[in-house]
Design a protein around this nucleic acid. Structure first.
Lengths: 346, 346
DNA sequence: CTCTGGCACTCATTGTTTGCAAGTGCTGAC
DNA sequence: GTCAGCACTTGCAAACAATGAGTGCCAGAG
């Protein structure tokens, strides 16, 4: 990317962006010249700004307004100029504190808490996806008879994640049968990933068919019914109200579109999945290409879980105009923390 | 309540309210006089309106604007004039259809679906509270060892409701011990309500102390830890975006207050709890007294579960200006439907 | 006694004009 | 290359008039 910016140009681009970030208004040359880090006259700044505009990093809403960074300008700023400092200890402590006493919670609760902390720390909306069920390691499966023909299955992963579902079955099965099934399946499937569980069930069913063992066959069939087949994971969204303050969302129609986009779990999920492939913090600017309603917003995301095999992802969504130098380390730190908390369970 | 309204006054009050409901704007005498159900001149209507204003049922935003119903006017209308017709079969069918194939879902899923259907049918925000855990009937309890000292407890109610939590325990407990506990407790607690479970556990603990049986004592202690102590139920909120369309929420600050109020589960819960005591549909107008952020909104709620012993409540929250003749039967029908679906499991 | 047409009056709203402030681009001097 | 100065553009706010919706009241008809 065009490293061809002079130090002065970088300085002024940063200044414009920084000022824009906490003002949400076009910034003019005079404003910049008054900053103490800048020691040139407004006229000079105008010249530089004009150059930057030609390069596509700034733009003017109208002729006699100040400049506003373009998405491209922001991207360049984030990638080439911004230096991400470590999160200061106080902020870290405050995030950690939010998890205090929560280590013993169920995975879903941990992720919800994560969302809350993330949105509180960033003052933006936060999204957290639940771990990919395919990678979970089987811990235990339990059948509970609710009434004849209706069975509650509880599937526990090693991470502490729990999935419940209710399935139908032959009416004559009693709780004792189910207990037998439970013991059999738990033995058979111990310590496999869900993918392996699936395979193992298939294999065993083929085998049982040969041996013609009715009881075990039934158990295996129930086991199969209980698995989450191609079910996509959950997404937790927290802190949407943080977006309501921002002046760029004073337009009702737009706001509505944004909130509706947040209801669409599947698109959010796809958005988060993008950051599973790469390590570290990812920044998606102007999410417009992907998600209709989120046009003009920016997502800062990171994956959690193992670096090699990430389980899920989390992130922050807000106006393109957000304080990246603060938010990037927040997302980064939170992702590490979540990895650590969930990781401690394996 | 002042039944002292003449037929004509009632007619005009209804007309004003009906017009206001789908216009959101002050309505004037001429507008009313043009309705075909009204056969008097604007001047007469003005006189009547003036009387109604004196009685506190209408008010004028400013001298030369039309009239707007006051909360008192709306209340009178709903209580004394409005006749709630049965929901038409098509609307019923459409709600029922939403539950199709969902009967087998876990309680939480049923309630979430309920919220979605309710908000879709009413075009307002919907709230649904989960059944009061105290009244649930114990079905089964299961301990799963996640790692030494950390135990996942799965508590299944007869209704199919599941509660998971993770508790700490002595590190030396193995899964076999836990299985023993499970069998013992499930036997001991079968078919009790959670309240009774609590008592039973206390009693048994006192007894075991005398008998000094370490193992069973431990089991009982674990059982106690697993119970939801004074945990308030969940509230599901759906369809908040429906509120974004309404013109009365174009004010940003107000909107923010409203959305923040929706985040406050406990206040919503308190709101819903009010309708547990009375049967049928309840209407809370201008929820302001109770919940700060929801000022000027109206809640239409009903309880579900048994009539004598309601389990939870659900409702719709929207601007005071909502189509009560449509919404009341929707809430009513949905509540019955949910009662039926969840009831079928006992 | 009730209803209604007519009329004067009140105000929010809308459109227009005008002045102001912010900001730019350009030019010419250092 | 830097910068002061100046002419020019444009959004925005204030001021003002015109518009129109709606009311209250009065006097006359039924």
């Amino acid at each position: 990317m065009a490293k061809g910016l002079s130090e002065r140009e970088k300085l002024i681009l940063s200044a414009v962006i920084a000022t824009y970030i906490n003002g949400a208004e076009p910034v003019g040359s005079r404003t910049i010249s008054k900053l103490k880090s800048v020691n040139v006259s407004p006229a000079t700044i105008r010249n530089v700004m004009s150059d930057l505009e030609e390069m596509g990093y700034l733009s003017q809403p109208h002729v006699s307004a100040g400049r506003v960074p373009t998405p491209q300008g922001l991207r360049f700023y984030v990638e080439s100029i911004l230096e991400v400092r470590e999160l200061d200890e106080r902020a870290k402590a405050s995030i950690r504190a939010g998890f205090q006493g929560r280590q013993e919670l169920e995975v879903r609760e941990v992720l919800k808490t994560t969302g809350r902390l993330l949105s509180a720390a960033s003052q933006q909306a936060a999204v957290v996806s639940s771990p990919n069920p395919e990678q979970e390691v089987f811990r235990r499966m339990e059948f509970v008879l609710l009434r004849p023909g209706l069975i509650l299955v509880v599937l526990v992963a090693k991470s502490g994640g729990v999935q419940n579902r209710i399935i139908e079955a032959e009416a004559e099965l009693g709780q004792e049968d189910l207990d037998k099934f439970t013991r059999y399946l738990n033995e058979l499937l111990a310590d496999l990933t869900l993918n392996e569980v699936r395979e193992r069930l298939e294999r065993e069913m083929a085998r049982e068919k040969v041996r013609f063992d009715r009881v075990l066959g039934r158990a295996l069939r129930l086991g199969q019914q209980a698995l989450p087949w191609g079910e996509s994971g959950d997404v937790f969204v927290e802190g949407r109200t943080n977006l309501l303050g921002a002046p760029e969302f004073s337009d009702m129609a737009r706001l509505k579109a944004i909130f509706e986009a947040f209801e669409e779990r599947s698109t959010l999920l796809r958005l988060l999945e993008r950051s599973l492939s790469a390590p570290g913090v990812q920044i998606l600017m102007g999410v417009e290409a992907e998600v209709a309603g989120l046009a003009g917003l920016t997502a800062v995301t990171a994956s959690y879980g193992g670096d090699d095999q990430p389980a899920g992802a989390l992130g922050v969504i807000g106006p393109a105009r957000m304080d990246y130098s603060k938010i990037i380390p927040i997302v980064d730190y939170t992702a590490r923390l979540v990895s650590q908390i969930l990781g401690a369970r394996d």
